[in-house]
């Protein structure tokens, strides 16, 4: 009775190294059922891996917000001097 439990624990236990790989993979593809199980079990037990995931999520969110803010929502424009300079260069080119 005990042996299968240990076998199962051994199969689902994973290192933090593998957990970080699965966290990253979850951003890019669907995890397999087995990966999801391992991910949740390790996540419950490991404070540092939960923190790692939170930080990676924060980095992604910051990157997206930045792209949106500066790319579309802001009204920052090039200086008139720079525009004039580039126009001159284009004429001369």
């Amino acid at each position: 009775m005990v042996a299968p439990v240990f076998w199962l624990l051994d199969k689902v236990a994973m290192s933090c190294d593998v957990h970080t790989q699965i966290v990253s993979a979850s951003f890019d593809r669907r995890l397999t059922l087995f990966e999801k199980i391992k991910y949740h079990i390790h996540g419950i037990a490991c404070h540092f891996c939960r923190r790692y995931e939170r930080q990676l999520n924060g980095m992604r969110k910051a990157a997206r917000i930045n792209a949106l803010e500066f790319g579309q929502r802001t009204h920052r424009t090039m200086s008139p001097e720079s525009k004039a300079r580039i126009k001159e260069l284009l004429k001369g080119g």
Binding site: A67, F70, T74, T77, M78, K83, I86, L90
Partner: peptide
């Protein structure tokens, strides 16, 4: 080009 796309490209680069 500069008038039509300058500011868009500028913001793209700035991000």
């Amino acid at each position: 080009w500069v008038d039509l796309h300058g500011d868009y490209l500028f913001r793209y680069a700035l991000s």
